[in-house]
């Protein structure tokens, strides 16, 4: 679980490095769940400076390589303006901003991850 947005806190970076290390060692990552401000990891509209890392893109690359399930909490996302096309339409918004490889879903996905995975690690502030 990632509880903080990228850049403001190191939590996303730590979670990314941990996830990458676990995958490289051959472990399965059942899911990465983004909660609280962590949902900002999933915006496709971030444009960090050229000489900085692009955390959203790093997650996307890792997801593409390992078929990683990146889930953004719908309730936390709605509050903070992270929307996919369906959510945008439902709420009458003129745009969506979820990044490819991320999906928006419910809190049940976090509980399910807790049940199915052998360990749950929380990264936050």
């Amino acid at each position: 679980m990632v509880n903080e947005g990228p850049y403001n806190h190191q939590a996303s970076d730590s979670a990314y490095r941990f996830t990458k290390a676990a995958l490289d060692k051959g472990h399965e990552i059942f899911r990465v769940f983004f909660y609280h401000d962590g949902v900002y990891n999933g915006t496709r509209l971030g444009v960090p400076p050229q000489d900085d890392r692009n955390i959203t893109q790093l997650w996307q690359e890792l997801a593409a390589e390992h078929d990683l399930d990146l889930v953004v909490c719908v309730a936390a996302a709605q509050r903070r303006g992270i929307l996919d096309a369906d959510e945008a339409k439902r709420h009458g918004k003129d745009a969506d901003n979820i990044a490819e490889r991320f999906r928006i879903s419910g809190l049940g996905q976090l509980i399910e991850a807790g049940i199915k995975a052998d360990r749950l690690v929380v990264f936050g502030d």
């Binding site: 419910g106 809190l107 049940g108 509980i111 049940i115």
Partner: peptide, 11 residues
């Protein structure tokens, strides 16, 4: 909010 959703999972 997580607690309320999680309550449905019978854990």
């Amino acid at each position: 909010e997580v607690v309320l959703i999680g309550a449905a999972f019978d854990q």
